[in-house]
Design a protein around this nucleic acid. Structure first.
Lengths: 223, 223
DNA sequence: ACCTGAACACCGTTCAAGT
DNA sequence: ACCTGAACACCGTTCAAGT
């Protein structure tokens, strides 16, 4: 007789964590509570997730994956239209999962699932005539709109300046636009691979916002 | 003989919490650990803070207060200069306290200390010729740059549409610009006091960013 | 009034033992 | 291999008792 309960898996553990966070809030996400959701004991989760912190990181990544999934289907002739609608769809996902913003902001490393969003964005922007440098600035600006600002791009090892070649290889294969852009931008900043000057990115986005506000002020004053 | 130890107070408890978060991370902020920092027992903290969640909210508010303190001193003839430098100073504070971004993003209500930043911003923008509607959009745009997006303005009671008149009175007294702007914008949206359409604010900021990127793309293409 | 010791219910995690 | 019971150290919080 086959077992009545479906076998546990990392995916099922993460899904149960999302369900608990959605219905009872992030504070209710305890190992025991998630296990109960799966009709098993807390200790069984440790066969699929190394620790509670890892589970929380997986929840943050799952939120990013849902964002990517929502955005992936959206295309438009005009790049502005496409990107605007993708950002709004992404925001809808974040609003549906109120625990996601705080959790993503608390992560030290950018969730791997979020890379696919940037890959798609860079592809769209490149097609629209963006050079790699501007595309790079753009994904920082737009990433901070969607996920909040604290997450840093291209620092998968948390500030270590020598990137994992295996990760780079996987990236090059599955994310050609992102890989090309990274290589190009890296070249420009003289070999400091995997390090974004996040203050410069912040200043750039801030400049976009301030310029736009000043333009709108003048438009209203002369209208 | 007077007691050797300084008496506990809410301020000392919050300061100890910040110290622990700065040196050992947010996870180390437990009631027992904070108490140890103050040479007392965990239970003593409950005379100054109602719960651990309240302590964490107080830490978020303290981060906002530090941001305000840093920004308050900065003035400039040009409003763009003043606001840019204040935002960068604010960001420096956030970077110095890496726990602050996640904690602020996790808060359901905007920390009271953050209001002073918006009061200052609205004052500066009004002086520079912004109407109240544009000033309102501006503080949403800039607030999301500094603190992240999730915190909602003017919803001190968490979505309840009838605002506390006492809070409004205090606000009117100490934050004239903010109070005037709130009243003006409220009037415009037909009586739905204390409710910002945060999706509209998001769309506005997104529009600023997208327009700025497109402008930069064209500038580079024609250069 | 402010502080505290003991206690309770709960948590993350380890480990030896089951299947 | 995957799962679990018992156990440990730790946590937030209550409460009665101290000063």
């Amino acid at each position: 007789m086959p077992p009545v309960r479906e076998a546990l898996s990392r995916d099922r553990v993460v899904a149960a964590g999302v369900a608990v966070a959605d219905t009872e809030g992030l504070a209710a996400v305890t190992m025991r509570r998630v296990a109960a959701e799966l009709d098993c004991e807390a200790m069984s989760l440790y066969h699929h997730v190394p620790s509670k912190d890892a589970l929380l990181a997986a929840l943050a990544d799952e939120a990013a994956r849902l964002v990517v999934q929502e955005a992936a289907a959206i295309t438009a002739d005009d790049w502005v239209d496409a990107v605007r609608r993708r950002c709004l769809a992404a925001r809808d996902v974040m609003v549906r999962h109120p625990w996601a913003a705080g959790l993503l902001a608390a992560q030290q490393q950018s969730p791997p699932s979020s890379w696919a969003l940037y890959e798609q964005l860079v592809g769209t922007l490149t097609e629209a005539g963006f050079d790699d440098d501007l595309a790079h600035r753009a994904i920082h600006s737009l990433g901070s709109m969607v996920f909040g600002f604290s997450t840093e791009l291209f620092e998968p090892d948390g500030g270590d300046s020598t990137p994992d070649p295996e990760i780079m290889a996987t990236m090059a294969q599955h994310m050609p636009n992102l890989a090309r852009m990274a290589a190009s931008v890296v070249h420009e900043v003289d070999g400091a691979l995997s390090v974004c000057d996040t203050r410069a990115e912040f200043e750039f986005t801030l400049g976009l916002v301030l310029d736009g506000l000043e333009r709108e002020r003048v438009r209203r004053a002369t209208a």
